[in-house]
C-alpha cells in the first residue's frame, strides 16, 4: 500500500499532529476486525468511533461489508478474499488520524415522549432517593439534557445514550429484572437506554415511552440512528395509552428533525 499517501485517496486534508490515544486493530475471527479506541466511557472517544465509521462507510472499500460502532470500538466485517487483511488494516490506519468528531455529519434531533414514575417508571422513587434528589428534580435533569445515541445494539433498535448529567450516575441494579416492557427508559453507569423489545435488564427504570423503537412490520423497523440527538419530553401517565394507540395505528409522528444540509 506504499502508493497511497495518507488520506489522499479520500481527499482528506492532513491530520492534526496532536497526540491522540493509541488505537489498536484486533482480529475478531476471519471475517471481522475490531478497531479499539481508549477503553473509557466518554463522548469524545465515542465521537471518534462514529467519525471513523463515517469515513469508512464513505470510502466504500470493496470487500468491506458492514460496520458496527459501539462506545469505544468499531467492528468492521469484511471479505478477506476481496480485501486482504494487510491491505484493509493499512487503509484503516491511514483513516484513523482523520477520525475527528467534526467530521461526523450533524445528527437528527428527536423528541421522545416519556411518562415518568408510577407503573411506567417503577424505579423513579428509589433512584431519586439514592441520588439525594426529589423525583421532580430527577425528571428535570433527565429531560433537560440533550443525549446522543452512541450506538444501537443488544436488541433491535435499542439506543445507548450518552450525555446524562453526572448527578444521575447510578450503578446497575444489583439484581437485574427478568422482564422489562418495550419502551422502558432506564439509566445506569452514566448511560441511558430505551428498551426496544421486552427483555431482561439491569438499568433503573425511570419511565416509559409509547414510541415503538422497533417495529418489524414497518417499512423502516428501526426508529433511531447512531448520532441522533435526543431529548425526553415528559407526558402525563393518562396520555400514554392514547399516544400508544396512535403509534400502533401509524397516526402519531414523533418530532424527528433532519439536520440542516451542510455544504459538501
Amino acid at each position: 500500500m506504499g502508493e497511497i499517501q495518507e488520506g489522499e485517496w479520500l481527499g482528506l486534508t492532513p491530520p492534526d499532529n496532536q497526540m491522540e490515544s493509541e488505537v489498536t486493530l484486533v482480529p475478531a475471527g476471519d471475517l471481522a476486525v475490531s478497531i479499539e479506541f481508549e477503553s473509557v466511557l466518554s463522548p469524545e472517544v465515542n465521537a471518534r468511533v462514529r467519525a471513523l465509521d463515517h469515513l469508512l462507510l464513505k470510502a466504500k472499500l470493496p470487500g468491506v461489508l458492514e460496520t458496527v460502532p459501539t462506545f469505544r470500538s468499531l467492528l468492521v466485517y469484511y471479505d478477506p478474499l476481496v480485501i486482504a487483511w494487510d491491505h484493509l488494516t493499512a487503509l484503516i490506519q491511514t483513516l484513523i488520524p482523520h477520525a475527528r468528531p467534526e467530521r461526523i455529519p450533524p445528527g437528527r434531533r428527536v423528541e421522545v415522549p416519556c411518562s415518568y414514575g408510577g407503573r411506567h417508571g417503577p424505579d423513579l422513587e428509589a433512584a431519586a432517593e439514592r441520588l439525594h434528589l426529589d423525583p421532580d428534580a430527577l425528571i428535570r435533569l433527565h429531560t433537560g439534557a440533550e443525549l446522543v445515541v452512541a450506538f444501537l445494539g443488544f436488541t433491535p433498535g435499542l439506543p445507548y445514550l450518552m450525555g446524562l448529567p453526572t448527578a444521575l450516575n447510578l450503578p446497575r441494579l444489583t439484581t437485574p429484572r427478568t422482564k422489562i416492557p418495550a419502551g422502558s427508559v432506564g439509566i445506569a453507569g452514566n448511560q441511558g437506554v430505551i428498551y426496544s423489545v421486552e427483555s431482561p435488564g439491569g438499568f433503573w427504570i425511570l419511565g416509559q415511552t409509547p414510541l415503538a423503537l422497533y417495529d418489524p412490520q414497518a417499512a423502516e423497523p428501526i426508529l433511531l440512528r447512531p448520532g441522533d440527538r435526543l431529548r425526553f419530553v415528559p407526558i402525563a401517565a393518562e396520555s400514554f395509552q392514547a399516544i400508544r394507540q396512535a403509534v400502533v395505528a401509524g397516526t402519531y409522528h414523533p418530532l424527528i428533525e433532519e439536520p440542516p444540509e451542510r455544504p459538501a
Binding site: 475478531a28 475471527g29 471475517l31 471481522a32 475490531s34 479499539e36 477503553s39 473509557v40 466511557l41 458496527v68 459501539t70 462506545f71 469505544r72 470500538s73 468499531l74 467492528l75 466485517y77 444501537l152 445494539g153 443488544f154 436488541t155 445507548y160
Partner: peptide
C-alpha cells in the same frame, strides 16, 4: 464496555463457561 460480537465469537461469562454466538446473535 459493550462492543460488537462477530459471528462465532466465544463469550466467556461470569461462571467461566463459553457461549459461541451465531447468526441470530445479539449485535
Amino acid at each position: 464496555l459493550s462492543d460488537g460480537i462477530p459471528l462465532g465469537g466465544v463469550q466467556v461469562v461470569g461462571d467461566g463457561q463459553p457461549i459461541i454466538l451465531l447468526v441470530d446473535r445479539q449485535s
